[in-house]
Nucleic acid binder design. Sequence first.
DNA 1: GCATTAACCACAG
DNA 2: CTGTGGTTAATGC
Length: 226
Amino acid sequence: MKSVSCSTCLLKSKAAENLEDAELNILGQSCVEVVFQKGETIFKQSALSSNIIYLQSGMVKLIMAGPQRTQILRIKKAPCYLGLPTTMGDKVNHYSAVAVEPTTACFIDIVAFKQLLRLNTDFSNEITIELCKNELEQFHRCVKLVQSHVFGRMAGNLLYFANEIYRSDEYDLPLSRNELADLAYTSRETVSRLLSDLAKEQVIKIQGKHIQIINKTMLQKISEKG
DNA sequence: GCATTAACCACAG
DNA sequence: CTGTGGTTAATGC
């Protein structure tokens, strides 16, 4: 197993910034770095999980097989931790993580991770904060998904990519139309229609996966009124 | 009833 | 993998 030097890592998490040298050694000795290509699965629903994953770079989708179909729970961009709920909460994963672009991930042994949580309270605090923020975001997303119509859901996701993921009103979607449908809980066909309607109304401009938001105020209105 | 919404099916590029 | 058109079931006015 290739040992990783976490102390010199330039892509350290905010939480790991709090670790002492000795603690970083513990981390380095129970941590491996893996590169994933687009479409590769990082961990799978129903499989046993004994690792916490830290995303150094790249982007993933968290997906869960539901009773009807597969749902994208959310898109996560590095840097961030993955699998805290699914590894700490149960023996097996309750959802899968799949890379949607080339991604580098550190696999951290759960025993070492728990040890660090005990040793360093600042580290634990940061982890707790990240988990709490995630929960809040998920609650909002849940309510939005359930209570708004397709236009609102779609607009919300387009804004999410612009504001949270790319921090730009112009970006290349890493997802196919089908995946957008899984994200907004709609059909592939509806996604196509919505996007071309929005383009017709001059709210956005689309060229394949390239999205440009032209009328953001309008898009926000659509997202809110849903 | 009638209109609207959005899913499902089919088919073409 | 996408975009479009037709059909259809559910819901609202």
